[in-house]
């Protein structure tokens, strides 16, 4: 923690950044907060958010930068947050030149809970690297089910949906101004639970974009296992197009370009 506070203090003092987007402990609650050079004393309360009190900082940063397009901000990132930033750079939503990372490595229990394959960012200012979890047992379990059983399981989950749009609203990667989920020609309006395809439409958008922060699932009042769906989407994108979501080295998302040639074959009937 001291290491992190020291780095933040230096960043603010040197005037390299207009602010640091992190967490503060206020009245016993960990809350997202923008630390500014004008109030350096606040940095003493800067914390690393506990695993069960995370916020979509990437999303807050997008709002900040839309108000202050020329300013540089520092931001606290976990492994997932950094993947999110990388993906947002690729989609043209943020400028990598104007973001400074303050990295936090997740503890082992967090990585196990998330089944996270990359629980630390490229810069670590707090915590130590732990063992990544390379296979998701939750996805494997559904994969092993028969078609009928999988369908029943997913229908049971989808029918609990109350269409609160919480998954979309908290998602750091959902930046569209118009949303397919609200398009009256694509999605029936005025009924709960919504169309069974509601979650699938979102899953399509999340493929190659979801950075597996898990906020959607934690936010869902109906406990729909959204994360399993999106993890599978990313696994498919990896299998089909060899694209690592949130990586800076594997080029653009397969949905962003047509390609020089297509080596894919249609599936037999």
């Amino acid at each position: 923690m001291d290491r992190l506070r020291k780095k933040v203090r230096n960043l603010l003092k040197d005037g390299k950044v207009a602010g640091y987007l992190g967490y503060i402990m206020k009245d016993g609650h960990p809350l997202p907060h923008l630390f500014t050079p004008e109030r350096p004393e606040e940095v003493d309360q800067a914390i690393v958010a506990p695993g069960d009190a995370r916020y979509p900082l990437d999303k807050l940063l997008q709002q900040l930068t839309s108000g202050y397009p020329d300013a540089t901000f520092a931001i606290q990132v976990r492994g997932c947050d950094e993947r999110g930033l990388n993906e947002l750079y690729k989609w043209g939503q943020l400028d990598p030149e104007k973001v400074v990372l303050v990295g936090v490595a997740c503890p082992q229990d967090q990585a196990d809970y998330c089944e996270c394959a990359g629980p630390w960012p490229s810069v670590i200012d707090s915590g130590d690297k732990c063992a990544p979890v390379l296979r998701s047992l939750r996805v494997d379990r559904i994969d092993a089910l028969s078609g009928e059983a999988a369908f029943q399981e997913w229908m049971g989950a989808f029918n609990k949906c109350i269409k609160c749009y919480g998954c979309r609203d908290i998602c750091p990667m959902c930046f569209c101004k118009e949303c397919a989920l609200e398009h009256p020609d694509l999605m029936s309006t005025g009924k709960v639970p919504p169309d069974s395809i509601f979650q699938l439409v979102r899953a399509i958008h999340m493929a190659g974009r979801c950075i597996d922060c898990g906020l959607c699932e934690e936010n869902c009042p109906a406990d729909i296992p959204l994360r399993v769906l999106y993890k599978k989407g990313n696994a498919l994108v990896k299998d089909l197009f060899d694209y690592d979501t949130g990586s800076l080295t594997t080029g653009l998302s397969p949905w962003k370009f047509l390609g020089e040639e297509s080596g894919m074959e249609t599936k037999p009937m």
């Binding site: 369908f151 769906l229 994108v237 297509s262």
Partner: peptide, 15 residues
């Protein structure tokens, strides 16, 4: 073909 192959696989996963 990118989209439809992906969608076929996703549909399979959800039964």
């Amino acid at each position: 073909i990118k989209r439809m192959t992906f969608l076929q696989d996703l549909l399979k996963f959800t039964g």
